[in-house]
Design a binder for these strands. Structure first.
Lengths: 341, 341
DNA sequence: AAGGTTCTTGACAGCGCTTTCAAAATCTGT
DNA sequence: ACAGATTTTGAAAGCGCTGTCAAGAACCTT
């Protein structure tokens, strides 16, 4: 097992030409059975492993697909990445990740890194790179976008408005009339869609929209906590909260816990995403499930299809309400309004 | 902005030789100021981006470091990966990930993929690839191992025994005498160390070790839930639980919640890891913090150092108890033993 | 101004693999 | 057994870049 066994070493060992070795490895052409055997044995004996970089250079492709996420450690992206990884398993392709950290400039940097590494295809998750930039990239390689809708590009996203609508609607059906909303950053399309879904459900139920009941967060836990604090100190009256994602719902829950406000006894809480940990939350969180793993999977199958020039119709992905234990009927016996201190 | 601008294109455009272009790009030798300018302008004008695969082939290195995790979507590894990513930022290296899914064969497959992609260095997190295999790999490239101790290799790990000892100790100091332990899979060294830490704390306090109080889980939430169920149905008496990781603590908490057993009022709970979500758990979880991000960071700095042939003394990383709200003094007024139904 | 140094530069040979292309080997049919 | 059709095979030219090497330019020195 020497240092760097190359294809030529194998060729010499097997007594054939490098071309032949290449052919048996890739199955690109018929090769006499005896020679094939000899080659395989030589490969075995030498412990040969093809150099993918050389192969990539020669073929003009790298057998990698670039994935731009916002934050690799976020549980939400974690699921998607896992989906991508799974979908690519068994194919010659391998994912390579880069994070945009929710900032357009960092996203652009991530794209540059991936392009420089000659990725053959690209999956872009959320983010705020200009659409034109993505369209430009799409001219030279397959690009699929998750979580945004860009005309002219393969996009994969759920109906955020519909999901938020259902989450809010669930609360209304439980009898809640004053429902607070912890919104996501309004610079993100999905966040504004969720806010719209919330409004629509209210409207349809004939409930007034009260701006004092919505606070904007940044999709991270602390902002959920802060949002509830804000709501409480400004004296807002509410019996339920619809958070634009699970992480903010977690934060909200802690704030409520600190005030001795019990979920769902005093206040019902619904999130959005259904992170893996949400079913182990206490109480298990009612939430609008966003199929992260499936989205990652479908995105990857899609680039693969584009790469091979084939067709692939991604399964429609829908947000779906998952009712667990953080929501309950509004207590009939007189509403106990939550108030500051 | 043409399709594939190569270095020679730039050379032609700037009226110099390819070598010169290479030199100004890499700063490998002095170049006349005027020519340098011309080259830079040409690069700009043509929108040239170096092909890293070609560069890699020519230099015999890929500028990538391979990272073997067990599960890319796990919050614990998420933190470590983020650390690696951060540490590599600004260097010419980029991480490339592959998951072992807690199975030796898959880990081996992951290693093969990474080696085939010519990674220049390797970070292996936990797992059960045989030590000899890693030693063998270490002969041809820098290898750093996180979470295991392998003589002859750069290893990074915390003192699991000490951490578990402190977690258990904390419970004892709060007055608890009957402390259950949800252990990790005993096939993993860290899990057995944590069990040992638990035992040592007990022993030191003169408390008996009761095998009926320990249940083995698999580090995932459901197993924590099941463990508590098991404990409860077998009639075990306990006032506190020390779980070998946070995820199992989450599961345990749900099981307790379902039975109407309140944390920390009735039972105190401590976890291990301090996942990002643990401080937003309800109640915020007391846990033994394992500095995932720092571990990832240090591991990456370490391979970098090995790669450059430099020296790097990683900061010592210690597990440290983080006291939050899931643990409380044993209620003095008569212990209310928890029992099945 | 000539000889000696030191810099700057371009030609060229790879890195390990793929992929024509045409020669060599094998197989047809008669 | 032989011309012709059909494989199977190896030589060779890249893929885009780096790095050695020796030639040429620029600088000294006396």
């Amino acid at each position: 097992m020497r240092e760097n066994v190359t294809l030529s070493d194998v060729a010499r060992e097997a007594g054939v030409s490098p071309s032949t070795v290449s052919r048996v490895i890739n199955g690109t052409a018929r090769v006499d059975a005896r020679k094939r055997e000899a080659v395989l044995r030589a490969i075995e004996r030498l412990g040969y492993r093809p150099n993918l970089m050389a192969k990539g250079l020669a073929q003009g492709r790298s057998l990698t697909v670039g994935v731009v996420t916002q934050e690799i450690s976020s549980p939400y992206y974690g699921e998607m990445l896992k989906g991508v990884e799974q979908a690519l398993e068994g194919t010659p392709y391998h994912p390579i990740f880069a994070s945009g950290h929710w900032r357009a400039d960092q996203e652009e940097a991530a794209l540059k890194v991936l392009v420089g590494r000659q990725v053959d295809g690209l999956i872009v998750m959320d983010g705020s790179v200009p659409a034109e930039r993505l369209l430009e990239l799409a001219q030279s390689m397959p690009v699929v976008v998750v979580g945004r809708d860009i005309p002219g590009l393969c996009c994969l996203s759920i109906d955020n408005l519909q999901g938020a609508y259902e989450g809010t609607r669930h609360l209304i059906e439980l009898g809640h009339r004053r429902i607070a909303h912890i919104a996501g950053p309004q610079s993100h399309l999905d966040a504004v869609e969720r806010l719209r879904g919330y409004k629509r459900a209210l409207e349809e139920a004939g409930l007034p929209f009260d701006p004092a009941l919505v606070v904007e967060g940044d999709y991270l836990e602390p902002s959920g906590l802060l949002a509830v604090e804000a709501l409480l100190t400004r004296g807002a009256l509410f019996t339920a909260i619809f958070a634009a994602n699970d992480q903010m719902a977690y934060g909200a829950n802690v704030a409520l816990y600190r005030r001795g406000i019990r979920v769902p006894h005093d206040v019902s809480l619904v999130g959005f995403d259904d992170l893996p940990s949400s079913s182990y939350f206490t109480p298990p969180l009612t939430t609008v499930r966003q199929p992260g793993l499936e989205m990652g999977w479908e995105a990857a199958r899609l680039v693969l299809a584009l790469l091979e020039g084939g067709e692939y119709n991604p399964k429609p992905l829908a947000a779906r309400l998952v009712i667990r234990e953080s929501t309950a009927l509004l207590r009939s016996s007189g509403v106990r309004w939550v108030h500051p201190d």
